[in-house]
């Protein structure tokens, strides 16, 4: 077993884990943060995307012990109390989801995208940047609309 301590959604967290434990397992099973999903489990679908020190990372392909001491943000850490994060609100407003399974990963990827490429995102850029996130319901159109709108809304709230 290995001792780890990290910050998850602003809270210090410690754990005693088998080194085999994936970050996504640690989040879901040890901490009960089930908003982060496992889709493909092969680092392709992006349902498991969380932020490690502010950068989007696939938590199904990262061992919990590898992020010891680092700062993790999951989908549960975005909203401010009952007020949704602007990107979450944009997905609600623009109907950027159907079944919702891929949505946490989509939103975490989108927030990272805004960090890297700013608030004025054209549809082509958004589609290119979503290559690591799969949705099997929507056909992506409304996801792209949501991210473009969410990116603008983040500029206002910042």
């Amino acid at each position: 077993m290995a001792k780890i301590s990290l910050i998850v959604n602003g809270n210090p967290v410690t754990g005693n884990v088998d080194p085999r434990t994936l970050l996504v397992q640690f989040l879901r099973e040890n901490l009960g943060l089930t908003g982060t999903h496992v889709g493909c489990d092969t680092s392709q679908c992006g349902a498991c995307v969380v932020h490690v020190d502010g950068k989007a990372v696939k938590s199904c392909t990262t061992l919990a012990v590898m992020v010891d001491g680092q700062n993790i943000t999951t989908i549960e850490g975005l909203a401010a109390g009952d007020t949704l994060h602007p990107m979450q609100e944009a997905f609600r407003e623009h109907h950027g989801l159907q079944c919702g399974y891929c949505t946490p990963g989509m939103i975490m990827t989108a927030v990272d995208l805004v960090r890297r490429k700013g608030h004025d995102l054209d549809h082509h850029t958004i589609r290119e940047e979503l290559e690591g996130n799969l949705c099997r319901c929507t056909g992506y159109h409304n996801i792209v609309e949501s991210i473009a709108a969410g990116a603008k809304a983040m500029a206002k709230s910042a």
């Binding site: 992006g46 940047e129 690591g132």
Partner: peptide, 9 residues
């Protein structure tokens, strides 16, 4: 290479 999240690791 890969996708944005893969490129972060």
């Amino acid at each position: 290479i890969g996708d944005p999240a893969v490129r972060h690791r």
